[in-house]
Write a protein that binds this DNA or RNA. Structure first.
Length: 371
DNA sequence: TCTGGGGTCCTAGGACCC
DNA sequence: TCTGGGGTCCTAGGACCC
């Protein structure tokens, strides 16, 4: 499915001063962590999702290779997955275990000499390294992670963050792949735009309406031509993405959250105002726990409501900086007044936006740092 | 088959001010 | 009495990522 091995590039190193971006991604991270602590699961179809109960409203977080062979993938309703793989082992999500494993992996990456580490999520990170031989460095990285955590990872090598990130897809499983300006079009040119990091089904569809279906076509287009469809920022940005260009520097500035949110899908739709009131109080309390732990004032609130079956509305409000529990709760309950009565509610979410320290505003974000 | 939970950023349109 | 144009703030919604 994905190409493996060396990319066959020839000639000189393209990077000045041997600076490289590596993207490290753990293989089957969640399933691998579960198998580590229950070795008897090795080789079996393992599905992790929700509370591990396939009769509940929940989706698959990760499926092992054995389960994927049956057509199970992330995001699929747990109920459907269970039907596809009748003898699957279905496990509840155990975030704390994954976080602990993640911390061990990241500590190993940071311990590499001369490395700058930018964490992207539980199971992946960018690394900035200086070396004349990035492939050897990458294999050493795989071995170091395996030795310290018993987990396998794949490593993408690139001259930009975007190329390194996409390269990892060709490195899996447990391999190394290099993607630079020199082989970008040869490797990616004929592929559909949706293969790009940051292009999903909607954007690839809108690009197709402009007769842009491949990465090569996107790379060749005039950025200005995309502005009418995508706006002044996103238009040129998609064109740049098509070329694989973008940020080249790995930034290890600590990440500062813009806000915190909690949301819950109810196993039975809420129909009574009393239930809604109670549910919002509970969400607000959970969000405030996180906010108070950070010690930063709240400046905005958003209430998200999914009316059954699948119609979502958000109600937002900017507020005067406050740190007061009762104040936030009162204003949240005020937003509840906007909810349409008489409609069953399947999901409620609550988000608090926090004030940002001026110097942290530039701090990178976990998922869009390379943009 | 019936769709989680935690994030980020962008855009459009209305309100308001000068 | 009716109206331009620019700027900023706010709300709602959309798209994407892990």
């Amino acid at each position: 499915m994905v190409r493996k091995g060396p990319c066959g590039q020839t000639g000189t190193v393209s990077q000045g001063e041997n600076q490289w971006v590596l993207h490290v991604d753990l293989d089957q991270f969640i399933a691998a962590v579960e198998v580590l602590r229950r070795p008897e699961l090795a080789g079996k179809p393992v599905i992790v999702g929700g509370r591990g109960d396939p009769t509940e409203r929940a989706v698959v977080s990760t499926a092992s290779y054995e389960a994927r062979a049956f057509g199970v993938g992330s995001g699929m309703p747990l109920r459907v997955a269970a039907r596809k793989v009748p003898d699957a082992v279905i496990l509840p999500v155990d975030s704390e275990a994954y976080l602990a494993a993640s911390d061990a992996v990241m500590a190993t990456l940071r311990a590499q000499p001369g490395a700058t580490v930018q964490v992207l999520g539980w199971d992946e990170a960018f690394m900035g390294v200086s070396t004349a031989d990035p492939e050897t460095y990458a294999r050493g990285l795989h071995d170091a992670v395996l030795e310290s955590t018993s987990l396998h990872c794949s490593v993408g090598i690139g001259d930009t963050l975007v190329r390194a990130k996409i390269a990892t897809g060709f490195a899996k499983p447990a391999g190394v792949f290099r993607l630079t300006v020199e082989n970008w079009l040869a490797v990616m040119g004929d592929r559909p735009t949706i293969d790009l990091w940051g292009v999903g089904s909607k954007v690839s569809g809108r690009l197709a309406k402009l007769d842009i279906t491949t990465v090569a076509q996107l790379a060749a287009c005039d950025p200005a031509d995309l502005v009418p469809e995508f706006g002044p920022k996103m238009g040129p940005w998609y064109a740049q993405l098509g070329r694989g260009d973008g940020e080249r520097t790995v930034d290890d500035t600590p990440w500062v959250a813009r806000g915190h949110s909690r949301e819950t899908t109810y196993q039975q739709d809420l129909t009574e105002p009393v239930q809604v009131d109670e549910a919002v109080r509970e969400l607000v309390a959970r969000v405030l726990e996180d906010v108070i732990a950070e010690g930063r004032p709240v400046i905005g609130l958003t209430l998200k409501v999914r009316y059954a079956p699948f119609f979502t509305k958000t109600y937002a409000r900017r507020i005067a900086e406050t740190f007061d529990r009762e104040d936030v709760l009162a204003q949240a309950l005020n937003l509840v007044g906007k909810i349409e009565p008489e409609r069953p509610i399947r999901l409620l979410g609550f988000r608090a936006e926090m004030s940002m320290p001026e110097e942290a505003r530039k701090g990178h974000t976990p998922t869009r740092s390379g943009w």
